[in-house]
Design a protein around this nucleic acid. Structure first.
Lengths: 106, 106
DNA sequence: ATTTTATAATACCTTATGGTTGCATGTCAA
DNA sequence: TTGACATGCAACCATAAGGTATTATAAAAT
């Protein structure tokens, strides 16, 4: 979290439950930091660190508005995960087919 | 990795590139540890630790066959991720609609 | 019976992760 | 112009993560 790592990818970003929750909050609407951190039991500083990681993964971005910093979700970035999962769809379908075959033979 | 953590979930499991690669290898066919670790530059011990994490996430399981331990993928477990992503589909569709709206007005 | 192969178990190391507190700075409202 | 509010930043901390190397054990093959 001590953002020494130069780049966080989407898979690492969604590994943490807090970060997944943040993404869902932002899906509903753009939000400033304070508003986001109110949803968690951890400190604001900790939430900010999570936001930075999400930012590095380009899952969110922020724009300053007065004294607030408003975060926005970039849903499109989740496609990277969907794409990876798609690789397994083939095998998933195979499993279903095997099952169907088994049922038919009964 | 020092499997002190009692439970790894699917999201944590797929966060690591090596583990994602292992899953793809196993998608093709069941494999014993040695065969799997041949695909990586890291030590067999390290690969085994990754396999244990995948096992905890129930993404794979193993059965002993003679002196070999053969690992099998459980694709179904990836559904958990698909389900989570589905939550965002709505917002993704909204984005597309907005874009379409924008294009039409031009 | 001995060697080879496949895995298991342990100890150890370095860096990343997720969190904290305290203090500084910028901005809006009275 | 003085608080109050929103954020920024630095230092620090404990534990998890990812890796290594070494030694032990079980099963095949010679």
């Amino acid at each position: 979290m001590t953002q020494l790592a130069e780049k966080y990818d989407v898979f690492q970003a969604i590994a943490d439950p807090t970060r997944r929750h943040v993404l869902q909050l932002l899906a509903a609407s753009d939000k400033p930091i304070t508003h986001i951190s109110e949803h968690f039991a951890i400190s604001r500083t900790a939430v900010v660190k999570h936001l930075k990681i999400l930012e590095q993964a380009e899952l969110v971005s922020a724009k300053k508005k007065g004294r607030e910093k408003i975060y926005t979700l970039h849903v499109e970035r989740l496609k990277e995960i969907e794409d990876w999962l798609q690789y397994f769809d083939l095998f998933w379908d195979n499993k279903l087919a095997q099952l169907q075959n088994f049922v038919e033979k009964e």
